[in-house]
Computed example of a mutant assay.
Amino acid sequence: MSKKLAAGINGLVMTVPFGSGAFMKTEARAVELAEGLLDVARGAGVPMTALISDLTQVLGDSVGSGLQIREVVRFLTGEYREPRLLEAVLALVSETLVMGGLAGNLETARGIAWQHLEDGSAKDRFARMVLAFGGPADLVDLPERYIRDAPVIRPVYLEKTGFVSQMDCYAIGIALLGIGVGRTRPQDDIDHTVGASSFASVGSTMDATHPFCILHAPSEDAWERCSEALTAAVECSVTPAEPLPVIRSRLSTD
């Protein structure tokens, strides 16, 4: 909050996640954190909205820098929008439009956000942002020209069958960190080709024809180690779990 307030913001919209992939592991603790952040915002005279969000499963389709850029492009072009990520994006954008006075209410704001996705203006804006930061002008049109593939790309199948009931997102992150997705020290290099994509969600069928994800690894040995860790991070049940909304509640300074 200190960093955001020091930047001179006049409003703030953010998610406060909970779950195995979040700092706060329970919804109650996330609400407690959000209320503390809102108190700081009130003290600074800054309007703020906090959306309590679910991070008990992977949000979006990919983990890994190159893979996530590909996901952004697919999302903006409409090729594929992972449903939970789409809901989170629309919720955040809608709140921001209302707070900024660009829409009178959340329903109108959601329509505006959806229109900009569908008519390509959000995609075009992203392309201009990439160019402004020194990136290629045609990244959105030709991402394969700039984002290389990992040496080993194969699906990860679970030995368990049934339906995904829960996943340990922290363990998934640590497993992927081990193949170069992120840094453990500031001086470490990041391998932009590695990661995982096409994640199953809670409730998805798991059997010999439905993989949990596609693993992009730097070598066969790394694929084997990471695949084993990913498999251990997932639990299955004989009946599908009830799907849960990604945005659980809304708190604000109003």
Results as ranks from 00 to 15, higher is better:
A109G: 12
S201H: 09
V152L: 06
V93Q: 07
R110Y: 07
V202H: 01
E79I: 10
V140W: 05
F126L: 14
V13Y: 03
Y80T: 13
E144K: 01
A150R: 00
F23Y: 14
D119T: 03
A229D: 07
G180H: 02
H210V: 04
D39T: 13
A30N: 09
F126R: 01
E95I: 01
R225K: 15
A150H: 01
H216T: 04
A127T: 07
F133Y: 14
G104K: 13
I112S: 05
S204Q: 05
G111Y: 01
P218L: 00
A137V: 12
L177D: 06
V238N: 10
R29L: 13
L230R: 02
E118F: 03
G134Q: 05
E242V: 14
D119C: 09
S237I: 05
E144R: 03
R42W: 02
V238L: 14
L142Y: 10
P136C: 09
A200F: 01
E35K: 15
G111I: 02
M99E: 08
G21A: 10
L215Q: 11
S197H: 05
V98W: 04
T184S: 12
T253N: 09
S94P: 03
L142H: 13
R81L: 11
A208N: 10
S197L: 02
H216F: 07
F75I: 03
L33H: 10
G8W: 08
R183W: 12
A50R: 03
G60D: 05
S2E: 15
V13D: 04
T239A: 14
E35G: 06
G111L: 11
A88R: 06
G182F: 05
K4H: 11
R29A: 15
G135W: 04
E82I: 04
R183M: 12
T26F: 02
Y80S: 13
L102Y: 12
I172K: 00
V93K: 01
V73N: 03
T56C: 12
R110M: 05
P17I: 04
G78F: 06
G36V: 09
Y170H: 14
V234T: 03
T161E: 15
H192W: 12
S252K: 06
G101A: 06
G66T: 00
